[in-house]
Structures are given as structure tokens and as C-alpha cells.
Amino acid sequence: MGSDTHLREVPVARTELLKGHFLHVVRDTVQLPSGREATREYVLHPGAVMVIGWLDDGRLVMERQYRHPLREVMVEFPAGKLDAGEGSLACARRELLEETGYSAREWAFAGRLAPTIAYSDEIIDIWFARGLSAGERQLDEGEFLDVFSATPDELQAWCRSGAIIDCKTLVGALWLQNVLSGAWTLDWSGTMPPAVAR
């Protein structure tokens, strides 16, 4: 792609704006490629995972969860943020079990997405899981969600109709569609490529 040095901004200083229980917001002063300075306000995020759980009958493990910022119940794939020092696969295993009660025999790392590049450094790792066995959910205090299963066709229809607008789930549907068509393949070793491993 060539050099991108003519596009890069150089951080000069940082001011902390908010350090809450979940959100950490900062304002960076940066030097632009032109030499002038500007500010960038954004959210620091520890990273997260999303799990596309594949049941033996081909159906997918999905959730319905109320999301306060939008004041709506959203249909999503199971997901959650990394705890301090936690690896991506360990987080995926934990989140799948805690939110849905399922454990998986096999795991495949698919890729990454950056859902809000204009105002957050969040990266979400996408994992596929199969060989699922049901167990007891271990929801966090104050966490309420419904777990259900859907066919890939139902998922695609909801994405097309706008019933699903969650960006990570839309990206997961894209991955699933390409895997099912044979256009994209998965490595079921349960490891991440060295280039992306945290």
C-alpha cells in the first residue's frame, strides 16, 4: 500500500477527562502532518471478544439484551470485554459460559473488528465455537439477557431487515456467510495467528 507517514498524527500530550467504572475517556493533543496541532477525544478500551456459537444442528447461539444508550433490546452474538491480563480465547470461553451456559469443544479464531474507530481504540476478536454442550449460565450481577438459537437464514434476514443493527453481529454474519459458502475458511486449532495475538 505504500508509506502512510503523510497521514500519521504524532501524540504530544494527554488529558484524562473521565475515569469511570467502565469508560476511560481522554483528550490527546496531536501534531498533524501539516505541523499544526489538534485535539482528539476518545475512549480507551481493554478489548473484547465475540463468539459465534455453532450448535450441532447448524443453528446459532444468539442473545437478546437491553442496551441502555439506545433504549432498545438488541439481538446479538455473545460478547464481552477482556479482564486485565486475560487472553482472547480465555475471555471467549468465559463469556460464552457465563452468558449462555455453553462450553465448546473446538474453537477457531476468525478475525478482528474495530467498531468505533473515530472515538475508541476498542478491538473485538471474533471467535467461532462448535461442539457445544449446555450447562448453567453464570450471569454477572445486574446482567439480564435471553439466550435463543436461530438459523443462519434467520440471521441473514434480520440483518437485511434492520432487526439487527449491532455492528459486531453484522460483521459476524458476514463471516458466517462466507464460511458457509466456502469462500473463507477457519482454522479450528483454537490459536490466533502470531501477527494478531495479544
Score class of each variant (00 low, 15 high):
154 E>W: 02
76 E>V: 01
18 L>E: 15
193 P>G: 05
43 V>M: 12
103 S>N: 06
28 D>E: 11
96 L>Y: 04
176 L>A: 07
59 R>T: 14
194 P>M: 11
188 W>H: 03
153 D>C: 04
20 G>S: 10
12 V>E: 09
98 E>L: 00
126 I>S: 00
14 R>Q: 04
118 A>D: 15
188 W>N: 01
170 L>I: 14
154 E>C: 11
172 G>D: 06
25 V>K: 05
3 S>Y: 12
187 D>I: 12
62 M>W: 06
186 L>P: 03
152 P>W: 01
60 L>M: 12
80 G>E: 03
78 P>Q: 07
33 P>A: 08
2 G>H: 08
28 D>R: 07
57 D>G: 07
179 V>S: 00
129 A>W: 01
194 P>G: 02
127 W>P: 03
114 A>T: 06
120 S>M: 12
133 S>R: 11
81 K>F: 13
5 T>A: 09
190 G>D: 01
124 I>M: 05
117 I>L: 15
75 V>P: 00
181 S>K: 15
124 I>G: 01
12 V>Y: 08
123 I>Q: 02
61 V>Q: 05
157 A>D: 14
190 G>E: 05
93 R>C: 01
128 F>N: 06
85 G>S: 09
38 A>C: 13
40 R>K: 12
27 R>E: 15
186 L>T: 02
145 L>P: 01
69 P>M: 12
60 L>V: 11
50 M>V: 02
142 G>S: 13
100 T>M: 08
40 R>M: 10
24 H>A: 03
126 I>D: 03
47 G>H: 02
122 E>Y: 05
141 E>W: 03
194 P>Y: 07
152 P>N: 05
104 A>K: 00
171 V>Y: 11
49 V>Q: 00
141 E>C: 06
10 V>I: 14
94 R>K: 11
117 I>F: 12
157 A>S: 15
143 E>G: 08
